[in-house]
Design a protein around this nucleic acid. Structure first.
Length: 286
DNA sequence: CTTTGCACCTGTTGGC
DNA sequence: TGCCAACAGGTGCAAA
């Protein structure tokens, strides 16, 4: 069994989970032919195109890319290839299983490969997406206005400073805006703001460049550590039956309302921002 | 243009 | 035990 079979339990994806899924997928799917695609339920965020199965079948997967939380399977074809765009939404997962394994509830899509593995898409809430992009480059309306990758060269404190001038929105909602930077979800937004010592309610436009340098570094550190933890927890999981699949490092503030701050002992506060929960330490974050 | 709140959907949790 | 409201890690969209 490959380590990444255990991704079945890695639901509720933020960027580190999507990247870990991509890395798990790569050795299993690259250079494999897609033999058969079965769609049991098309009703995702947008309907899965009725032609998707036929489009994919008999074609070769040449690569799997990631843009933000979108996975892009590069599909070869003699005439014109394209990309299978996958988003895991709030509850989606992609995992490999034995060819012929009976589908469970919410197992919406199966992709059978030439090496006899079965890649299965599972998504109880159906907020995810599975769409086809035709052509040599992954261009799609959903991808056009996305901001830079947080772990790429174009993202830094100067970018956050520049794009935030004159904006009154809170810094927490600002960094969760995919037009500003992709891949910062609700957990890592709270965690990164704690690391940077910035209160989530501060107006984005009132934060100095030097504090944004700290925040950009905190975002990168938080996400890359979680990606590293993803790889290791998959191995650890082999030994821990029944452990929850979410492999995030122990949260410093997220979901710790009323608990003591691990740094100063103050009581962690929970507030609502944009219909989402935010957590912060009123002592460490000013 | 920005900001705000709703919408999509199922499953789990906590209070009564 | 049951019931019901609130909430869950995402993000496009419409309205203001």
């Amino acid at each position: 069994m490959a380590d990444w079979d255990l991704l079945e339990s890695a639901v509720m994806p933020e960027l580190p989970e999507v990247e870990t899924t991509r890395r798990g997928l790569l050795p299993t799917v690259v250079n494999q032919k897609i033999l058969q695609v079965t769609v049991r339920d098309r009703r995702l965020r947008w309907p899965i195109p009725t032609s998707l199965a036929q489009t994919l079948e008999k074609r070769i997967v040449s690569d799997v890319l990631r843009r933000g939380k979108y996975l892009l399977w590069n599909i070869e074809a003699a005439n014109s290839g394209g990309f299978l765009l996958c988003h895991l939404g709030m509850s989606g997962s992609l995992f490999s299983t034995r060819h012929g394994a009976p589908p469970a509830k919410h197992d919406h899509v199966d992709i059978v490969l030439g090496n006899k593995t079965l890649i299965r898409y599972h998504d109880p809430r159906r907020f995810g997406a599975m769409l086809w992009i035709s052509g040599p480059k992954p261009t799609h309306p959903l991808l056009t206005s996305l901001g830079p990758e947080p772990l790429g060269d174009e993202f830094d404190g100067a970018h956050l400073f520049r794009t935030s001038r004159g904006r009154s929105v809170s810094v927490k909602e600002f960094i969760m805006n995919a037009r500003i930077v992709v891949g910062v979800g609700n957990i890592y937004a709270s965690e990164a703001l704690f690391v940077a010592g910035i209160r989530p309610t501060t107006a984005a436009g009132k934060i100095s460049q030097s504090r944004y340098e700290l925040l950009a570094a905190a975002i990168q550190q938080t996400l890359s550590r979680a990606i590293e933890a993803g790889g290791s927890s998959l191995r650890d999981y082999l030994k821990v039956d029944g452990e929850p699949g979410y492999f995030q490092l122990k949260a410093t503030v997220y979901d710790r309302a009323d608990a003591p701050c691990r740094v100063c002992g103050s009581t962690i506060k929970m507030i609502r921002q944009g219909q989402r929960s935010s957590y912060f330490c009123p002592q460490c974050q000013r």
